[in-house]
Design a protein around this nucleic acid. Structure first.
Length: 1169
RNA sequence: AGUCCUAUAGCUCAGUUGGUUAGAGCGCUACACUGAUAAUGUAGAGGUCCGCAGUUCAAAUCUGCGUGGGACUACCA
């Protein structure tokens, strides 16, 4: 006979270990994929982690989410292939290696060859793969780790090159410049990541300067835009305008603009203002030259700029008596306008050392011809302009500021670029950080004193010299030291420059609209990330800067001639090989590094004969059509492009698996999931590449999960020491409880405050209860030899409570299925746990206990076993995506005995189907009534201190409608046995003894009566018993509120019973229950009998008897109990399996038992055989 | 600085289209049960629904402005 496994106790970590062994011994994961061969695929993409670092607890979270839906879809019959992947390139890898080897970037190519360096990176990056694989195994994340995609492998790189080739052919790649952080001493650009290293931003004191940019009040030639027009100046505006004193410089005014980097002023080509900001025109004198001036600045900043020595004055006297050198200087606001009025006004170049060359030539993106003469040196709008500090007018030097470049480009203002010796456009500062020859007396000087070698720096920095020059020329309004935080190069410790650097760009802006449109078809979880964070990101899309000046990454596969006229993008190894052949023929190369590569041979061995990394491809010189040599563009690509390429690159598309992508659409994921921090990372690069190359989405459903914080809501970090070790957690609590906790505690997209106490709770509350329920089932099923061999007892033949739990179960299947389908794992888990704890364990099992251990192996008993079995089986299946180990144990323990379902593993079974016909909402409703009534009766008993063991005669329930009565009748037995009462009396509403209360229904009345709602409510609440009776008789009433007739019908109010005079009553919601607490002699004796049953049962247990052992009982007689025992002898015997029960006169041995009312006696029990 | 998320009991979280006693679990207190027993049940205490303003007959719920927490992006003349 097969028996259900019974356990001594629940040990979840051990369960996981055991089940894991089973999985591995029987290749369950492989089977779960292979048994669905030929079925519809469910496409999942694994976002590649970097094996460079160790996994944290948040990886358990992220991977649990991925795992859940892949397992769920497998249960639903889909084939779910999941290929693991490794992200292997990138700066963190390089930095780690440099730290380990004790070198810096400068040493590459000197102390260490690029080849050695790259090999070190390759080795380092896969260092922790074992740890990762272990985590994956232990947490039960099913992903194919035997055949992962690895981004540094040649096949992968070849696919990436192919994608780049597609973009190139579509004209979506171009070379241009962008303003990037640049370290002149290190001679390299810096990534924002490098800039965000701790300590990079330092507080420094710089010479800041508010410069005066001169603009004629009314320019000659009658320019449309002018200061006088903007401020609507005429002779009435100011007395000075009406009759200017001879010294007053009237022909112009000045824009004030502040800068902390005066060395950028010679490169100024525009001034930016905020369109909505208020500006004023101020009359005053320059504090350095004492010249009278008109100045333009933001109204809000007048106070800040005109601090001492200035004072505000409206008196003409102050102005006419002012003379050079006075300690105080008067100023007066004479007109006001909006920023928008200033747009387009031209001004004189501040420091005219050079004129802007038109625009940098850019490969693939020729400059718009016919640059406007005089497009520079005018006022343009800038949405970033604030009145926080400065003047509300921002000096724009497009060559040295990212924002500057952006607004200048938008306004059509050229950057200050000049042509160098080779006719290449360059900024006024060279790559060493020195001024170019055009800069006159400043030529050859470093723009920052920090760039000079030790001891060589001049006394006055360029900033100071420029400030002095401006002061002398009446071009400086204010010069002072200013302390602010400024980024420094983390290697040289010198301040960085923002500097235009050449880069390759992908023209994502060209497909912006398409990306927005496609994004609208993606199901984002949560939706707001898709419309908000991601959507906004797309709306404000910039071109994708692809270049990285690094060593360890995928090289840009572009070769160019020196004159940049001829260019080739290599999109396959085959093409590279043949191009090299041509080059060899022309004598540019001597041998072909790809000589051994066999075109068309996709074997691993063939692809390991060469290397596509920088150290190899940089040596390759190709030949252009004209016969000129072509060299590779030296940059690598952004590693985000690596990972965004994975849908096709993981399959080596299009060189292999072409059909899988083209025909079976395996290049489009049904589902992906990563942290919300990937929104602009992986989620974006996948979307961008798919849109640009294939014109379709890369994924249909995406879950972006939040962070895992510590229990105090702080971010976990090694530094703070609050990081949770995932292995320790899994070892201690087991993967099931950990996963269940993470999934049910917070929605995946909310941040999780991770607290191990929560796991303990889940362990005890959910798994403990489920385990207990199973143990209970197994204990009695084994005693009765139940193996689910009998035919299914028809649902209709099963008792009310069985039909109820089956109805609940099917409602649960429906809810859980819906939750999984909509990527809401939290809802699924919570629904399951509510079912298990509240319905199955706390109601069904509790109420049915007797059915399992009492009586013969009848149909009722079989029905009970079948029902409980089914519930457990289905719960195991529904939970298996979240708690894959325990669910599998539970399911297998059941199915191995019964032979039902898949007897190997829950993960090979089919998701349960809902049986709508057994969902009975009326039944669920009336069980709800039963639960409520029981709870109320128990509450009453408690108030009166009457134990549940003491039977009571009756309870009374007022019946207000026939449906309620029927529902109550059908669950009456359940209630009576649960609360140990003999009968229910239904109080029909004819007696008039019921005290009722009436409550207005705001939901129906509100819309109808609006404003007089409050008065109606007040009136209705004051109805007395007569009014209510009257209302019920006529099923409505008409009342008068503030002169308005108001018709109330029965839907507009709720009438409930409140009291039954003379009885002990409890009211809750609409339900009222009265309890008869008088205890007759008979009831009392029955109560005593039950007490005895209880004591005897305890004794049985203490004596270690088996549950089905027969016993003989002896009780020392006692006047208070003799009748109770003799009258209920039969009852006591059946309950306790006693075949003999004797009241004896004397008992020398035995156990003393006490009862409430100070009486005690002795009992002995003996096992019989 | 911008964008997005978030704020409900001591803690972790629910709370339907706005509808009048705001719920659950844990924890705490008291009690009960004792053939699920290292389990279980019942009851009690515990709330400025972050603040302010608005819309409405009615706001935890909708709108606006703030504050705290978090993320991402950018970076300041």
């Amino acid at each position: 006979m097969r028996k259900f496994n019974e356990y001594k106790k629940l040990n979840l970590p051990n369960v996981a270990k055991q089940v894991l062994e089973q999985w591995e011994a029987n290749n369950i994961f492989e089977q779960s994929v292979s048994i669905r061969e030929g079925k519809q695929p469910f496409v999942f993409f694994e976002g590649p982690p970097s094996a460079n670092g160790l996994p944290g607890i948040h990886h358990v979270m992220a991977r649990a989410i991925k795992d859940i839906f892949c397992r769920y879809k497998t249960l639903k019959g889909y084939q779910v292939n999941r290929k693991a992947g490794w992200d292997t390139h990138g700066l963190p890898v390089e930095l780690g290696v440099e730290k380990e080897l004790g070198i810096t970037k400068e040493d590459i190519g000197k102390k260490i060859s690029v080849e050695e360096y790259n090999n070190a990176c390759k080795e380092a990056v896969m260092r922790y793969t074992d740890v990762w694989n272990n985590l994956t195994r232990q947490m039960g994340y099913w992903v194919d780790m035997d055949d992962p995609y690895i981004t540094y492998e040649n096949k992968y790189i070849e696919s990436v090159w192919w994608l780049l080739g597609q973009l190139f052919q579509k004209g979506l790649m171009y070379k241009g410049y962008t303003i990037q952080p640049y370290s002149p001493k290190a001679g390299t650009g810096l990534s924002s990541h490098e800039l965000n290293q701790p300590g990079c931003y330092k507080d420094v004191k710089d010479t800041s300067c508010v410069a005066q940019f001169k603009s004629p009040l009314t320019p000659e030639g009658g320019m449309e835009n002018s200061i006088s027009k903007a401020f609507k100046l005429d002779k009435t505006t100011d007395s000075v305008l009406a009759s200017p004193p001879p010294s007053w410089e009237l022909e112009g005014a000045f824009f004030l603009a502040w800068t902390t980097t005066p060395w950028t002023l010679p490169s100024n080509t525009a001034l930016a203002v905020g369109l909505k900001i208020d500006y004023v025109l101020v009359k005053t004198y320059n504090q350095y030259t004492f010249t009278p001036v008109y100045l333009v600045l933001a109204k809000n900043l007048v106070g800040k700029q005109f601090s001492k020595p200035y004072f505000e004055s409206t008196s003409n006297e102050d102005f006419s008596t002012y003379k050079a050198g006075d300690k105080t200087i008067p100023f007066k606001i004479i007109a006001e306008c909006k920023g928008s009025d200033l747009i387009g006004i031209q001004y004189e170049q501040l420091l005219p050392y050079a004129q802007p060359y038109v625009v940098a030539s850019s490969v693939g993106n020729p400059p718009p011809s016919g640059e406007l003469e005089g497009a520079a040196f005018r006022v343009i709008p800038g949405d970033f302009v604030t009145t926080e500090d400065g003047t509300g007018i921002v000096h724009i030097a497009p060559t040295f500021g990212a924002d500057d470049a952006k607004v200048a480009k938008e306004a059509g203002v050229p950057a200050m670029l000049v042509l160098d010796e080779n006719d290449n456009p360059v900024p006024l500062v060279d790559l060493q950080g020195k001024f170019r020859p055009e800069m006159g007396e400043f030529a050859g000087k470093y723009v920052k004193n920090e760039y000079y070698n030790e001891g060589e720096a001049p006394e006055k920095s360029v900033d100071v010299e420029i400030a002095i020059k401006l002061k002398e020329e009446n071009k400086a309004f204010r010069v002072e030291k200013y302390e602010h935080s400024y980024p420094h190069c983390w290697r040289t410790d010198k301040p960085i420059l923002y500097y235009p650097l050449d880069s390759w760009f992908i023209k994502t802006t060209a497909v912006k609209e398409r990306m927005i449109a496609l994004n609208k078809t993606i199901n984002w979880k949560p939706e707001s990330t898709g419309t908000g964070r991601f959507g906004n990101w797309l709306e404000n899309l910039n071109d994708w800067n692809l270049s990285r000046s690094r060593y360890w990454g995928i090289p840009i596969p572009i070769w160019m001639t020196e004159d940049k006229m001829e260019i080739i993008c290599i999109d396959s190894v085959e093409l590279l090989k043949s191009e090299i052949e041509k080059s060899i023929a022309a004598g540019y190369m001597t041998e072909n590094p790809l000589a051994d590569f066999v075109v068309g041979d996709m074997s691993k061995a063939n692809y390991e004969k060469f290397d596509l990394h920088k150290n190899y491809v940089d040596n390759i010189v190709l030949i252009a059509a004209s016969g000129k040599p072509m060299k590779r563009e030296t940059d690598l690509i952004d590693v985000w492009f690596d990972s965004g390429s994975m849908p096709t690159a993981q399959l080596h598309y299009p060189f292999e698996n072409k059909d899988l992508i083209d025909k079976q659409k395996l290049g489009i994921a049904d589902f992906i999931a990563e942290g919300v921090d990937q929104t602009r990372g992986w989620f974006f690069t996948l979307h961008a590449i798919a849109t640009m190359v294939f014109d379709h989405v890369a994924y249909k459903n995406v879950v972006s999960n939040g962070l895992v914080l510590d229990k105090n809501g702080q971010k976990m970090s090694k530094r703070l020491g609050n990081a949770v070790d995932p292995f320790e957690t899994l070892d201690k609590y087991g993967p099931d409880a950990t996963r269940w906790y993470m999934i049910t505690n917070a929605q995946p997209w909310d941040n999780l405050k991770f607290d191990v106490e929560g796991i303990v709770e889940v362990q005890r509350k959910f798994f403990g209860t489920l385990y207990n329920t199973y143990s209970f089932f197994a204990l009695y099923a084994n005693l009765d030899n139940f193996t689910y061999a009998e035919a299914e007892v028809p649902i209709a033949n099963r008792p009310e409570i069985d039909r109820w739990i089956i109805s609940k179960l099917n409602s649960l299947i429906k809810a859980v299925e819906n939750a999984y389908e909509t990527y809401e794992p939290t809802k699924a888990g919570r629904a399951i746990q509510e079912f298990v704890n509240d319905h199955l364990s706390n109601w069904y099992v509790r109420l049915c206990r007797r059915r399992f251990w009492k009586g013969d192996y009848s149909e009722d008993k079989i029905a009970a076993y079948q029902t409980l079995y089914t519930c457990l089986e289905v719960v195991a299946q529904l939970s298996s995506p979240i708690a894959p180990f325990y669910a599998d144990l539970l399911y297998s323990d059941l199915s191995k005995v019964s032979g039902k379902g898949n007897t190997t593993s829950v993960h090979l079974s089919n998701f349960p189907t809902v049986n709508e016909s057994v969902i009975d909402t009326d039944l669920e409703q009336r069980m709800n009534i039963a639960q409520q009534v029981s709870s109320m009766v128990l509450s009453l008993r408690k108030k009166e201190q009457i134990k549940v063991r003491q039977p009571l005669q009756k309870l009374m329930i007022p019946i207000l409608n026939p449906t309620f009565k029927r529902q109550l009748q059908e669950v009456a037995d359940l209630i009576l046995s649960e609360v140990n009462v003999k009968e229910i009396e239904y109080l029909e509403d004819t007696s008039g003894v019921l005290v009722k209360s009436i409550k207005p229904n705001f939901k129906t009345l509100g819309p109808k009566y609006g404003k007089i709602m409050k008065q109606i409510a007040a009136l209705v609440t004051q109805f007395n018993q007569n009014d209510i009776q009257e209302f019920e008789k006529n099923s409505g009433v008409e009342i008068n509120v503030e002169g308005q007739q108001v018709m109330l019908d029965s839907n507009d109010v709720e009438i409930i019973t409140q009291d039954i005079p003379g009885w002990l009553v409890q009211t809750e919601g609409g339900l009222t229950v009265a309890l008869d607490i008088s205890i007759s002699q008979e009831l009392k004796e029955e109560g005593i009998a039950r007490e005895f049953v209880n004591r005897i049962q305890n004794l049985r247990k203490d004596s270690g008897f088996e549950v089905n052992d027969k016993i003989a009982v002896k009780i020392l007689q006692h006047n208070e109990i003799n009748d109770a025992i003799t009258k209920n002898k039969n009852y006591i015997c059946t309950e306790t399996l006693a075949t003999q029960l004797d009241l004896v006169n004397e008992l020398n041995e035995g156990v003393t038992v006490d009862f409430d009312n100070d009486l005690s006696t002795l009992i002995t029990i003996k096992k019989l055989n």
